[in-house]
Design a protein around this nucleic acid. Sequence first.
DNA 1: AAAAAACTTGCAAATAATTTCATATTCTTC
DNA 2: GAAGAATATGAAATTATTTGCAAGTTTTTT
Lengths: 251, 251
Amino acid sequence: MQAEERQFLIEQHLQKVEFASLEELSEKVDVSISTVRRDLTLLEAKGTIRRTHGGARLVTPKSDEFTFTARDTHQLNEKEAIGKAAAALIQPNQGVIIDSGTTAYHAAKHLGGKASHIITNSLPVANHFGSDNSVEVLVTGGVIYPRLGVLVGPLAVESLSKMHADVAIMSGGGITLDGVTNSHALLIDIQRAVLQSAQRIIFCLDHTKFNRRSVSPLCGLDAIDTIVTDAQAPTDLVAELKQAGTQVVIA
Amino acid sequence: MQAEERQFLIEQHLQKVEFASLEELSEKVDVSISTVRRDLTLLEAKGTIRRTHGGARLVTPKSDEFTFTARDTHQLNEKEAIGKAAAALIQPNQGVIIDSGTTAYHAAKHLGGKASHIITNSLPVANHFGSDNSVEVLVTGGVIYPRLGVLVGPLAVESLSKMHADVAIMSGGGITLDGVTNSHALLIDIQRAVLQSAQRIIFCLDHTKFNRRSVSPLCGLDAIDTIVTDAQAPTDLVAELKQAGTQVVIA
DNA sequence: AAAAAACTTGCAAATAATTTCATATTCTTC
DNA sequence: GAAGAATATGAAATTATTTGCAAGTTTTTT
C-alpha cells in the first residue's frame, strides 16, 4: 500500500468515527504504530486532523448546533438593539410572522409574551419558543436549509400563503431606494409569501445593509411599512427613505 | 479511549442530562473520579461546562433547547440502545419518517448519513439534522406543543398525509396484545397519518411500555412490522407478539 | 458543631510521544 | 536490469504526559 493511500484511509476512517486510537488505526491500515504516528503528524500539518494523546481526532467536529447563532456575533450589539426596538413595535395580542434572518431572531427573543401567536419558518426561532406555553407558535413545514436552520421549499411557501398575521418581522440582505434585496432565491420565494400574508411589514436591517444590493430583488419600498435599524445607518439614505413614506426607527 | 474523546463524551452526556455527578460520569466513560475531575476542569476552562460540588452542569445561558431530552434521563441507556438497534434496521438511501417520541429521537441520532431523506414533526430531531447537509430533512408544519417540541395540529397531519416514506420509526405510550396506545389525542392524529404514509412501521418501545395501556388506542398489532425494545421486556409478551406475526428486535 | 461528602495536592505507576538507529523498500541512474 | 542514493518503515531507548491513589483540606449537610 502507498503512503498516500494509507493516509487517505486514515483520514476517511476518522471522518466516520471522529476519534481513533493509534492502535486502531495501525490495525486498520496494517502498519506499525510508528508509521501511523508519522502519518498523523503529516495529516495534522495538512490541517484535516488533530493529534491527541493516544490517537487523533477530526478537526471539524460535527456539532448539533446551528452555526446560525454562533456566526451571528457580527454586529451583535446592533442586532440585539434592533431586535428590541422591533419587538417594541408589536402591540399586545397581535399575530406575528418572523422570518429567518439573524436580526429577526433577535426580535423574537424580545417578543416575550406579547404576541398571541407567532408564525415562523426559522428553527432557531421555533426553538426559542419551544418551551413557552404563553404563545402559540406555528411552524411552517419545509426542507431544512443546512447550517441556517431555515425551512424552505414549496411546503414552506404554501403554508405561509395560507396563513395570516398582523405584523411580519423580516430581514434582508441589502436596502436601497429601489427596495430590499436578498441572497437566496429559496428565501425570496418565502419572503414574498410573507409579504402577502401580513398586514404590516417591519424590516430589521442593520447599518451594513444600507446602500447594498444583494443578489435578487425582493420588494420595493412601497411594500414596507417600517424599517428598524441602528444608529450608524447613513443619515442621507434614512432621510430619503422617510421622504419616500417609509417609517424608520433608529434603535 | 483517548482523553479528548472522553472529554467529548462527557460534554455530550451533559448536553443531554444538563447535570451529572462525578460518579455517573466516571462510570459513563470508565475512568477514575480523579480523571473526570481533571477533565471537567479542562472543559470548564474551555467554557462549555461549569463545575459544581459533586458534579458538573451545562452552562447554557438560557437554554433555547428543549428540556425534552434533559428531563428524560429515565431509561436513558435502554433508549439509547433501542435507538441504535432501530437505526440499524434502516437500509441505505431509504426515506424515513421519525415521529416525536424520545426513543425515536435516539434512533435519529444513530441514523447518521444512512437515510436519503428524513421526515419529522419533532423539533429536536430537526435540530439534530439542522447542520447536516448529507440528508434532506423535511419538517412538517404545525403548532409547537410546548415542552415536547412536537409539531401538532391540522397542518402537521395534512402535510404528513401528503408525504411518503419507506420506513417510519415511531414510539408510543404502551403496548399490549391489542396494539399500541398513546397519551395525547393530538399526537394520535399525527401518528395515524404516519402509519398511512410509510411502507414499513417500526415501533421503539422500552420495557416499561409493555403491558401498559395509555389513554387512547393508536393501532392494532397488524399495523406494525417491527418492535424494537430492550432486554428487560417481559419475555411472555414478547413471545406472544412474535406469535402474532410481529418482528421483535431486542437491543 | 460534628459528620459526611467532595475537592486539592503530591506522588508513583502506567501509558504515550519523541528520538535514534537499523533494516527494508522505492527510485534513479547507468 | 543492477548498483547506489534516497526515502520509508519498524523497533528500542529515552523523555514526557496522563492516570489512579492516598493524605490532608475545604465545603456541605444534618
